[in-house]
């Protein structure tokens, strides 16, 4: 370990985590539309990064472990990213990423049913 995590680091990280939690709840109460979810998830990612770096001491651990953790996160992001691209590109009846077109498509499908 190159540097020890001090008590001061832990307390500052904890205060930041609680503040970010308050920010998450506040953001969820704002009329931000569908971006509100992505803002909440971005804040969650920031909180997770804080826990990883300070509480789990990834910032101060052995270099090899830092590489392993970095690669794990990279593969995880690629996997989640590809999954989301797959979901959003499917021609499902309702797709929030293509909301207007999807609503039109759903209406057309509904209207077409009696035929």
């Amino acid at each position: 370990m190159s540097r020890e995590t001090t008590l001061w680091h832990l307390i500052v990280a904890f205060a930041m985590l609680q503040s970010l939690l308050a920010l998450t709840v506040w953001a969820a109460r704002q009329p931000l539309g569908s971006t509100g979810v992505w803002i909440s998830l971005s804040i969650a990612a920031l909180k997770a990064l804080l826990v990883l770096l300070v509480f789990m001491e990834v910032a101060n651990t052995h270099r090899t472990i830092r590489i392993v953790v970095g690669v794990l996160i990279l593969w995880f992001m690629i996997w989640i990213g590809l999954g989301l691209v797959d979901y959003s590109s499917r021609s499902w009846p309702v797709n929030p990423l293509l909301s207007d077109r999807a609503v039109d498509a759903e209406r057309l499908l509904t209207e077409a049913k009696p035929l």
Binding site: A28, Q30, G33, V37, L41, V51
Partner: peptide
């Protein structure tokens, strides 16, 4: 703890006024 950090906005904050 990290798992819950993601589950909380994913499950609880979808029904708020931001939707």
């Amino acid at each position: 703890d990290i798992v819950w950090i993601f589950l909380f906005p994913l499950l609880y904050l979808y029904g708020g006024p931001s939707q």
